[in-house]
Design a binder for these strands. Structure first.
Lengths: 155, 155
DNA sequence: TTATCTTTGACCTTCTCTGACCTTTACTAA
DNA sequence: TTAGTAAAGGTCAGAGAAGGTCAAAGATAA
């Protein structure tokens, strides 16, 4: 069976999916109690599973009436396009930002899972290019062209 | 008589064939214990017998509640992808034959139109690689990895 | 005998989980 | 008001639990 962290992740995601607003408030200590672990374990789960990268935002308040609020972000199309535009404008497209972009495109359902894997596979294969400069330009070029293609054939 | 590696291979393949999902999770240390060998021997078996080329995918997670997951991929003979795979397994590939292959895959409905465009875009971008040998190896590698990916994430 | 395949073991990296200690906030008694 | 206190939540380093790597030694096959 999965780790405690995994179950806690599942539990929170289930709560989130059941909530109409895509937002839940929890008590750190209560949650820890329910899972019979130390409160800081909750932070561990939040830091590893509910990151911005993964499409969540977490805010909290300390002290009496404190809480931890978890939100499922739904990135708007405008946000995404502006981000991508920026990435493309920046001449240098690092491999990691390329991967981030691919992931976001998938999350937003602009590309299918297979398409995202196809794009990532390309990045992987490029790793055998020794010349870093060549590899980086290839990465940028590839992402750009793929995006243009996707846009052309109707996003 | 067979080596330890051979028996371990047989054992794992039997487990796989008994599993309805074609997927098993094992504990590296436990398996090593069962065969009275060091844990790294398990890695040796996985690396030599359960490769992507041989139709398996292996993923794992470290740390507490870690695991090694072995999947049997569909590489059956009637699978066109696997036949194509044989052709290009270790060879270089010219751009034109790569394009032909992509087109065939599309015609046979193994890939969508967008997917075919994505793959072709990659070939286009590779054109900036001057060194023909490098370019052809990259082309072969890319096609191969893309096919393996398509097989891995199964239809 | 040489080349290839197996096996081992020392050392490494990643992931989880815990506990001690810190900071912030609401409330309340002076 | 203000100072103090209790009740949250936050941080961080370290321990423990997997799995991974690599090179060298030991077998086997050609």
């Amino acid at each position: 069976m999965g780790s405690l962290a995994d179950s806690m992740e599942d539990y929170l995601k289930k709560l989130l999916s059941l909530s109409a607003s895509g937002c839940i408030d929890i008590k750190r200590k209560e949650l820890a109690g329910k899972f019979m672990c130390v409160p800081s374990q909750v932070n561990y789960v939040l830091e590893t599973r509910f990151t911005l990268e993964k499409g969540f935002s977490v805010e909290s308040k300390r002290g009496g009436k404190g809480f931890v609020r978890i939100r499922k972000l739904d990135l708007s199309a405008e946000n995404l396009l502006s981000m991508i535009l920026q990435d493309i404008m920046d001449a240098q497209m690092s491999e990691s930002s390329a991967r981030g972009m691919i992931h976001r495109l998938y999350e937003l359902k602009y590309i299918s899972f297979r398409e995202s894997r196809l794009m990532e596979t390309t990045l992987n294969s490029l790793q055998i290019v020794q010349d870093v400069t060549l590899r980086n330009s290839l990465t940028g070029l590839l992402l750009r062209d793929m995006l243009l293609m996707l846009i052309k054939y109707n996003f």
